[in-house]
Design a protein around this nucleic acid. Structure first.
Lengths: 155, 155
DNA sequence: CGCTATAACTTAACACGTTAATGATGCTGC
DNA sequence: GCAGCATCATTAACGTGTTAAGTTATAGCG
């Protein structure tokens, strides 16, 4: 499929299709392809789904932490919270002890929404797990965490 | 860092932070973080950089194939080609034998541009390779390809 | 040849990614 | 107490992701 040359010789650009950015991007695309029909059917974006799931798992938190955990930038989150509030899936309030912070939480409607979508989502993930195989999936999970750790510039 | 429970039990949602979509997203983010200053300094986006690199590696091709290889959707590519043409980094022309197709190619200026940025880019990739380690990088590369293959619905 | 279907792009509309700048609040030291 | 700096959130501007609809061109078929 691809020439079996070394990934990178240190002097020239690597084959674009074999670089980490594209491999990670296309792998992610292959995974998301399976979830998209479900999310679309429930009129929610992938990013919004991440946000409300994080809220369900960890409860109310400020916007910065939510953005960090859901892998979403602050400006995007600001826009999304407005949309999710309009649908009454989340609620936000000012932190009383720190007026700069905005605390976001899941509403009862939000919890119900997740409960509605969760079974299908879990089924899709189980199908992916079955296709990929437990061994490969486990190794990938560990290696991806290791990759992040190796690249994290501990400031 | 994360509770050492099984990835997924088949009945409930997995821990969001341990799911493939987020792992792949955050790993990619960790990698791109290192390239962003360079790309920004040359006033080019990550996606545009992918597009012109694919053109350099494989030469003139039609838009569909280019979009596929660079992992970019057709509507995005249409917009990008306009921008890249305005900067005279790429050129496009109609396919003479199939009037529907648009053939995209790198200009001389485009080649020069890549030659200018390539050394820094290669240095950054080499640094990443050094941090991550050859073994982990090689295994990840293979596993990510395997993941894509496993999930590809061969239509 | 003409009709229909399909394919390759293009456009449009809306959401998110990314960077920079602004506003508001908190904090620190004097 | 207040001036100056840091932090959190928001806004703005532009590029890309995503889906749907629209254009133009080709292919198939009677």
């Amino acid at each position: 499929m691809v020439a079996p040359e070394s990934i990178h010789d240190g002097f020239e650009l690597a084959n674009t299709r074999r670089t980490l950015p594209i491999l990670l991007l296309s792998a992610r695309e292959a995974v998301m392809e399976h979830f998209r029909p479900l999310l679309h059917a429930h009129d929610i974006t992938e990013q919004q789904w991440r946000v409300i799931r994080v809220l369900q798992e960890r409860g109310e938190m400020d916007a910065s932490r939510l953005a960090d955990l859901a892998c979403i930038l602050a400006p995007s989150l600001t826009r999304m919270i407005k949309a999710l509030e309009a649908r009454k899936l989340v609620a936000s309030r000012r932190d009383e002890t720190d007026g700069r912070r905005s605390l976001i939480s899941l509403t009862e409607k939000g919890r119900t929404f997740i409960a509605t979508v969760a079974p299908s989502s879990a089924r899709i993930y189980a199908d992916i797990e079955a296709r990929v195989g437990t061994e490969l999936l486990q190794r990938l999970t560990d290696d991806l965490v290791a990759l992040r750790t190796a690249l994290d510039d501990e400031l």
